[in-house]
Design a protein around this nucleic acid. Structure first.
Length: 264
DNA sequence: ATCTATTCCTGGCTGC
DNA sequence: TGCAGCCAGGAATAGA
């Protein structure tokens, strides 16, 4: 399940591979992958990939006045090399180099083309958690009465967090996932902000997390899953901090693990 | 504003 | 060994 660290890993690998190359063709083999795109694939033919960036969980290929955004959702992968027979979208370059393939068994991922000036409207994302200041984050929390976990998963609030890193950050900062955001103390908010940044940086340093099927541009799995402290742990197993039995609840249709003793 | 339910989707797992 | 049924969840959407 690619979240910010997985997407960041892919983006860093994509830069030497595709930056500066000219798109010869973008072949859409599965129209459902492209169903939400404002513009057609013909728009990007012959354009140079000026830069590759990440915004939230989106991979962005900047082409000047146009932009391509790729969202991997649950099982999407980007692969560099020979076109994969399972590819749903294939990017070919004019120098005849290797191709960039979008593969996605569950077909939930999306590719979008839009005018660069429309980006904020098309993506509608909140702050980058590794770039915004702590005070800005605290101010955001203060204004929200909803529960902290769904709020952190809301891409319009902070962009790039998903179930894995939110679960880990709440555990690290000892905050119960059901707490109301506006009820967090200043101190708790700061600890949460620090924990989010630490979890994301650790994820990036370790090449992302491979749980079900995340792999990078070259098919390599990440290593961060070895660092998880509570995510994917079964209910009733021992808390790694206090040995109390971990609890499992559903929140906003997401499995949520926490320690009832040390997360308050 | 905030919440829940539904939809999308299929490999992998469970239980019979 | 086979097969039906369920489950995972990011995000859009609808409705309460």
């Amino acid at each position: 399940m690619p979240e910010l660290p997985e997407v960041e890993t892919i983006v860093r690998e994509m830069r030497p591979a595709v930056q500066g190359r000219v798109l010869r063709e973008m072949a859409v083999l599965d129209s459902s992958a492209f169903s939400l795109s404002p513009l057609a694939p013909e728009q990007v033919k012959g354009l140079e990939v000026l830069s590759v960036r990440r915004r939230g969980k989106y991979i962005l290929m900047d082409l000047g006045s146009f932009c391509i955004a790729i969202h991997l959702r649950m099982t999407g992968q980007l692969r560099w090399g020979e076109p994969d027979p399972r590819s749903r979208v294939i990017f070919r370059f004019s120098d005849g180099s290797q191709t960039l393939s979008f593969v996605d068994v569950r077909r939930l991922g999306k590719v979008l083309i839009f005018n660069t000036e429309d980006m904020s409207k098309v993506l509608s994302l909140g702050q980058e958690p590794l770039e915004c200041g702590c005070d800005q984050f605290l101010e955001g929390l203060r204004q929200r009465r909803g529960r902290i976990k769904p709020l952190l998963m809301n891409q319009g609030f902070v962009a790039g967090l998903g179930n894995i890193y939110v679960t880990e950050a709440l555990f690290a900062s000892r905050i119960k996932p059901t707490r109301r955001a506006s009820d967090l103390t200043q101190r708790e908010g700061r600890q949460l902000f620090q924990a989010i940044q630490n979890c994301l940086k650790m994820g990036i340093q370790n090449g992302g997390s491979s749980f079900r099927n995340y792999v990078d541009l070259y098919g390599n799995p990440g290593r961060t899953q070895k660092k998880w402290r509570v995510y994917a742990k079964p209910a009733g197993s021992a808390c790694p901090r206090c040995t109390q039995k971990l609890r499992f609840v559903m929140m906003a249709q997401r499995g949520t693990v926490y320690c009832p003793k040390c997360q308050r």
